[in-house]
């Protein structure tokens, strides 16, 4: 009983990400890319601070005691948010999502292959090479979809 519930929860979690890209993209188109990203991070910081303040069990280590390089994740988060807010109004939510996911999966294959970020080494094997090719193919198809739509729109005068 619990398992299907969790899976639905996960699907909702993913849908929430897509909705966030879409909403932020729209806001960015109206009020600016940096402005929209800024608001997202500020609201996120406020909410997570409240959640942490009241619900986080006490830990041995704190954000101030861990090595500083572990805190650099935000740099990537900011670049991601700016890219999404810029891209969504221009290429659509699905194309941006497919590109992000392909990038994530490609990078996780590389991280595994080289054992970066102190992960265990999991070398690329045949099925992982095929997975990489499929991801690149998916991006290609999304691009073709755009090209065709472009031609269609150009051929029918509005």
């Amino acid at each position: 009983m619990l398992l299907p519930l969790i899976f639905i929860l996960l699907l909702v979690g993913g849908a929430v990400l897509a909705a966030q890209s879409s909403i932020n993209g729209r806001l960015g188109a109206k009020a600016g890319v940096i402005e929209s990203s800024w608001l997202t991070f500020v609201i996120g910081a406020v909410l997570t601070f409240l959640l942490m303040f009241f619900f986080e069990p006490a830990q041995q280590a704190t954000l101030f005691s861990v090595p500083k390089w572990q805190l650099t994740g935000a740099l990537f988060g900011v670049v991601y948010m700016l890219a999404i807010v810029f891209a969504v109004p221009r290429v659509g939510t699905a194309a941006a999502t497919v590109a992000v996911i392909s990038g994530q999966l490609l990078m996780s294959l590389l991280i595994d292959h080289f054992g970066w970020l102190s992960n265990a080494v999991r070398p690329l094997d045949a099925s992982r090479y095929i997975a990489m090719a499929l991801l690149i193919g998916a991006i290609g198809l999304i691009y073709l979809s755009h090209q065709q739509r472009h031609r269609r729109l150009a051929s029918q005068p509005s």
């Binding site: 991601y80 999404i84 221009r90 992000v100 996911i101 990038g103 991280i111 970020l117 991006i139």
Partner: peptide, 17 residues
């Protein structure tokens, strides 16, 4: 743009890592 978003996605994996 797609290439830029792809690279941003790669960064996201580093963030998750």
């Amino acid at each position: 743009i797609l290439l830029g978003v792809l690279m941003a996605g790669m960064g996201l994996s580093v963030e998750a890592g």
